[in-house]
Design a protein around this nucleic acid. Structure first.
Length: 421
DNA sequence: TCTGGGGTCCTAGGACCC
DNA sequence: TCTGGGGTCCTAGGACCC
């Protein structure tokens, strides 16, 4: 059996832990720059606010007080996520942290006599009791079915946050009612094609197709999803975190940038952040892509998008080396007279730092760079991000519109909650 | 006026090898 | 007139996930 623990409306739930007065009321968490909705309470969903919907489209609801909004506070969400994961770890021999709000658990090692329905409800109750976050726990023989089971918990309060789905007749009953578009692995494109062209509406319609049909329509990933619906586990359980194969830092600017100095200070900072992540996972990268673009929503003008790939003959994790390559790319990309809205740095060809193939005629003093990088990392770890960096980068952090930011209750002593009696 | 920020895998086709 | 039979690697694009 596998379990999926999914935090309900996670970002909203994190905010509500410290604002219990918002329980039962419409709440929305906004993306960076307070741009669009990225999390919604059930009440906000019922008001018709869509995932990814721009804030200006529902501003009237905010101004009238019908909806409470928050700027995204990832320090808070990350910390709350860690607390939930820690509780989950106490209930299962193996846990795979799938995303900030979802974890799979492999229950293979548990006694087959376990009442997994009771177990799931207990896990959910304990998460709620110890963190304040409502969590839906679905248990089933495959990850895909566990996902479906956890969605049932959200739909039916009687499940009390936990649901065990395993008997074939129960699976059939559920799949016959479960929307095809909500299956894990069925995205917008497939859903549209299946529902429009083939008239398929439920998970059962997909389940009932034969393997050859699935293969020709969807290829290998589809076969896996289909088999998982049939109860055959096909999606690997990964309880050790895999190193990222690509690391990207990009941002939409609060204000468009046309000054090359200002743009390079920003891009240089993105680069520093990306390389810091790279070192944190103990890797080096063989390439760095820099990209800049103008406002894609701008009426009239074509969006200008440019990217440049820089390659390193010896894979590196030195901020200096990567930063100068990135700034060189940026110089080539930059065009006077354009107003840039978004930029980013992508590190690729990532390999473990201890597997780097050295070059015979290497000109970089890697030993020295490496010592300096670890000092920089430790200073930034201790004193906060962007305490120290390369001279070309901005140290002001990312300038974002965050008008509705909540305090970092759990990660900043200055923001710690005060309780009045 | 205002529109996020990350990731993964698979497939087909072209270039190249013997 | 007639034109083999394997491979690999890389890339772009398309699908998906949160």
């Amino acid at each position: 059996m596998y379990a999926l623990a999914d935090c309900n409306n996670f970002f909203v739930s994190c905010e509500r832990v410290f604002r219990p007065d918002l329980e039962g009321r419409p709440v929305v968490v906004l993306s960076n720059n307070d741009g669009c909705a990225i999390a919604r309470s059930n009440e906000a969903k019922r008001l018709g606010i869509k995932m990814g919907q721009p804030m200006f489209e529902f501003r009237h609801l905010i101004e009238s007080g019908a909806v409470t909004v928050f700027s995204s506070n990832f320090s808070l969400y990350g910390d709350m996520s860690g607390r939930v994961q820690q509780i989950l770890s106490g209930f299962s021999p193996a846990i795979e942290v799938y995303s900030i709000d979802e974890s799979f658990m492999d229950l293979t090692g548990m006694s087959p006599d376990t009442d997994f329905d009771l177990w799931a409800k207990t896990v959910s109750r304990e998460c709620r009791r110890r963190t304040g976050i409502p969590v839906s726990v679905g248990v089933s023989p495959t990850k895909t079915l566990a996902k479906i089971a956890s969605k049932l918990c959200k739909q039916y309060p009687a499940t009390k946050g936990g649901c065990w789905m395993y008997r074939p007749q129960d699976v059939e009953k559920v799949l016959r009612k479960f929307p095809i578009k909500d299956i894990w692995g069925i995205g917008r494109r497939y859903a549209k094609r299946f529902m429009g062209y083939f008239g398929m509406t439920t998970a059962w319609d997909l389940y009932s197709k034969n393997e050859a049909w699935i293969s020709s329509e969807m290829g290998l990933p589809g076969i896996r999803t289909w088999k998982e619906l049939h109860g055959e586990p096909c999606i690997e359980f990964e309880d050790t975190a895999q190193a990222r194969k690509q690391i990207m830092i990009s941002r939409t600017f609060a204000k468009e940038i046309s000054d090359p100095e200002e743009l390079s200070a920003q891009v240089s900072m993105f680069c520093s952040m990306a390389v810091e992540k790279l070192r944190k996972q103990g890797s080096c990268c063989g390439s760095a892509t820099t990209f800049i673009m103008t406002n894609r929503f701008h009426e009239g003008a074509e969006t200008q998008y440019g990217s440049r790939l820089a390659q390193f003959t010896t894979a590196t994790d030195s901020t200096f080396e990567i930063n100068s390559a990135v700034l060189k790319s940026l110089k080539e990309l930059f065009r006077n007279g354009y107003r840039y809205k978004r930029a980013g740095v992508i590190l690729g060809d990532i390999i473990p730092a201890d597997k780097v193939q050295m070059e015979f005629f290497d000109t970089v003093d890697r030993e020295r760079h490496s010592r300096l990088m670890s000092v920089m990392d430790s200073i930034n770890r201790r004193n906060g991000r962007n305490t120290i960096g390369v001279a070309s980068q901005s140290l002001d952090g990312i300038k974002m519109n965050r008008e509705h930011l909540s305090p970092c209750y759990t990660t900043d002593w200055n923001d710690i909650l005060t309780v009045k009696c």
